[in-house]
Design a protein around this nucleic acid. Structure first.
Length: 737
DNA sequence: ATAGGGTTAG
């Protein structure tokens, strides 16, 4: 029968009579070998053996040993509270110490309300609480977030005149601080003259957890003697609030006053270094750690891996990772996250696969780290597997960012319908989930879908943020909805008080430029209250190429080169503009500039997932094991395209002066290779999904439209900018991109 | 003999 306190407190003690305390001197007890026996005990089986041993030796009649036995059951992580109660119930007149131990056990348990029940029982049986009882009671109140009861217990303390006990005093402050009653915590603190580092820190932690860092800092500066816990409270407070510079400043100060950091300090500091990319400090901390032989501390090792990866030293991170003999889930997660963070998506996937081979169970953080890699690579099968896994093992999971990541993954893998399904299935839709859904629709060229969703969001009374408007404005841009775009742009500030950032200006300039409204685009650039960045000049330049605007194109390019002298794509665009205007001398001049600056073309690269494996193709790639079959298919495609009347448009190849390379370059663009591979390695009618690192060229776009018709395949292509759904000879972008 | 401040990644 499971004993509950209420049923247990029947005090059926007739079976045992506890004799009076023995006269064994205390000093003898302290060194008794049985004490180390108990402290080494790791499970109840062993405990029961020790218990019966104690009974044989007659030690159980001694109050000291009795308390040790109950204490083990009540508070050891290997103990058993019900068993503690069982022993307790055999004792006729339990001492206050035993009552307190039991209260402590329940206060630490998952049912802290029982600690309060036992306290009431204790008092109702005529026992008085002492100064030891109250810290346990306050701990229970904190865990229960029970402000009312906490105040009653506080009243009790005052009645008994125990408020000046330093332990009780601190536990009252801690309790009020942890249940969010900072005013009370402050009053207790201010009224008393008991102000040591501990009570200061208790209050500081309260302020920190409510985000009142300035208030916390004021107190921190007043502490007469700060110990390492005080420093940690403040440093980790800054770090968790995103004030990483402040965290590191404080850490430097801590070193100057010669307080030795401990594990917590180092973890906070490494996290701040990771966020700031502060590699130098990170390395100093790393050598400090290894100098003290702390390198094998798993928490620190994981934090170091994270720091190195986020600071760009991914190989150092990897060798640390490989050096850990017994990794935990965090080790795997930070390594995967490090690769994702550094855009090394294939490596992220490889570590994930390794993790599965070693039978390590992934968790939600693993998925949060691996999903962006799936999204970037278009690894839809793995993404789907993760979705199924989450549904199976994390059903009802509250981690809303995981759902947001899944929506984003589906959208970026070209499965906008699946993205919608996940989104619609969400009971609670966080703003980020709305945002990824809106930009997902925008990416897929469903401008009206995105705008409708935005209206729904507003109807639900949710306040959109700057990211929402990036989605809305880019939807308008992809759809060529100029007037609507203008309206949303002005509505941002007016109706939602979201001031436009550079990206919003970028969306608008792209929208206006692509619609050929150069005067408006120029006017917007000139009236902006911030300096235009490369992306803005780049999209203006791109628009100038589409609309053959030589003059503005030259200007935009000159501005862009001042910011990004090595932007190869920009030289190409400008060269295309010159070529379109027949200005061959200028084309040649650009060619020379490229050579002089040693700029290499970013190779076009397209990936396609077949049978859960992501295959990558570069321009004119001949490295694929099925290369021969692919090129055979490519010839077949070109033959059928020609028959269908497709004439390659060579106006965009002029920038490429390499004549022999130019030959056939169009038909060997990476997306065509990927499509050819997709056609030969999937069943007829299967949708092909491809991901390209650059923007699709107009040639491939025209060709892909025809391929979709000739081979009766839906082809979903993601380029640098957006999705194109090719079907039946048409593209969802309506040739506006 | 039982008591106070903080545990870790995104």
């Amino acid at each position: 029968m499971a004993l509950t306190p209420s049923s247990a407190f029947t005090f059926k003690t007739s079976a045992f009579q506890v004799p009076p305390a023995s006269n064994t001197p205390y000093t003898l007890l302290q060194t008794h070998p049985s004490l180390s026996l108990l402290s080494k005990c790791k499970n109840m089986e062993t405990f029961k053996q020790i218990h019966s041993q104690f009974i044989k030796l007659g030690l159980h009649n001694n109050p000291f040993w009795l308390s040790k036995l109950v204490e083990f059951c009540a508070v050891s992580p290997f103990g058993d509270l019900e068993y503690a109660l069982l022993i307790f119930n055999t004792i006729e007149n339990p001492s206050e110490i035993l009552w307190n131990i039991l209260i402590r056990g329940y206060a630490l348990s998952s049912n802290p309300e029982l600690a309060l029940e036992i306290y009431i029982k204790m008092v109702s049986l005529g026992n008085f609480p002492n100064s030891y009882s109250f810290p346990f009671l306050f701990k229970s109140c904190s865990k229960l977030m029970a402000a009312q009861i906490g105040k009653q217990v506080h009243g009790c303390v005052l009645k008994l005149g125990l408020e000046s006990d330093v332990y009780i005093h601190t536990s009252i402050i801690t309790m009020y601080a942890q249940i969010g009653q900072l005013g009370y915590a402050r009053q207790v603190f201010d009224k008393s003259c008991l102000r040591d580092a501990v009570s200061f820190t208790a209050l500081i932690s309260g302020y920190v957890s409510r985000g009142c860092l300035d208030e916390a800092r004021k107190l921190f500066d007043e502490i007469p003697v700060r110990d390492v816990v005080s420093w940690n409270a403040m440093i980790s407070g800054y770090s968790e609030a995103g004030q990483f510079e402040e965290a590191l400043n404080l850490f430097e100060k801590m070193g100057k006053v010669k307080v030795t950091p401990n594990e917590s300090t180092l973890l906070s500091v490494l996290s701040a270094c990771a966020h700031l990319g502060a590699l130098e400090l990170g390395k100093r901390v790393a050598s400090w750690i290894s100098d003290r032989g702390l390198g094998s501390n798993l928490f620190l090792a994981n934090a170091l891996i994270d720091m190195y990866a986020k600071c760009g030293e991914i190989d150092t991170a990897r060798s640390l990772f490989d050096g850990i003999e017994v990794k935990n889930i965090v080790s795997w997660n930070v390594m995967i996250g490090g690769y994702t963070h550094g855009s090394k998506y294939r490596e992220a996937l490889a570590v994930f696969r390794q993790m599965q081979l070693e039978y390590v169970e992934p968790n939600d953080v693993t998925f949060l780290n691996i999903l962006p890699a799936c999204a970037h690579l278009g690894a839809l099968d793995l993404g789907k597997w993760i979705h199924a896994y989450v549904n199976k093992y994390y059903y009802g999971l509250q981690n809303s960012s995981l759902w947001t990541s899944l929506i984003d993954m589906y959208a970026k893998c070209g499965s906008i319908e699946a993205a919608k399904q996940v989104f619609n299935g969400l009971e609670i839709k966080s703003l980020p989930s709305w945002n990824v859904m809106i930009s997902g629709l925008a990416m897929h060229g469903d401008a009206h879908g995105a705008i409708d969703l935005f209206s729904k969001l507003v109807e639900e009374g949710i306040k959109p943020d700057d990211i929402t408007f990036v989605g809305v404005l880019s939807a308008c841009g992809h759809g060529g909805l100029v007037e609507l775009g203008r309206r949303y742009f002005s509505s941002m500030v007016q109706d939602y008080s979201v001031p436009p950032k550079l990206t919003h200006y970028g969306c608008m300039i792209d929208l206006l430029g692509r619609a050929g409204l150069f005067d408006d685009a120029k006017a917007l650039v000139e009236t902006m209250d911030m300096e235009p960045d490369g992306a803005i000049w780049g999209s203006l330049l791109g628009a100038c190429r589409i609309h053959k605007n030589l003059e503005l194109g030259e200007y935009a390019a000159s501005r862009l080169f001042k910011l990004e002298y090595n932007n190869h794509g920009a030289y190409v665009l400008l060269s295309n503009i010159y070529a379109g205007a027949g200005r061959w001398n200028d084309v040649a001049r650009i060619r020379t500039m490229l050579n002089d600056n040693g700029l290499k073309k970013v190779p076009g690269c397209t990936s396609i997932e077949v049978d859960s494996v992501v295959h990558e193709f570069l321009v004119s790639d001949r490295t694929h094991p099925q290369g021969q079959d692919i090129y055979k298919m490519l010839d077949e495609i070109d033959r059928l395209l020609e028959m269908a009347g497709h004439v390659p448009d060579t106006s965009e190849v002029h920038y490429d002066m390499d004549e022999e390379w130019k030959e056939g370059i169009l038909s060997q663009h990476s997306e065509k290779l990927a499509i050819a591979f997709g056609l030969i390695s999937t069943k007829p009618g299967t949708t092909l999904r491809i991901v390209k690192n650059l923007r699709v060229c107009s040639n491939c776009h025209a060709a892909t439209k025809l391929i979709s018709k000739i081979f009766n395949r839906e082809i979903i292509a993601r380029d640098r900018n957006r999705f194109h759904h090719f079907k039946d000879g048409f593209c969802s972008c309506m040739d506006y991109w």
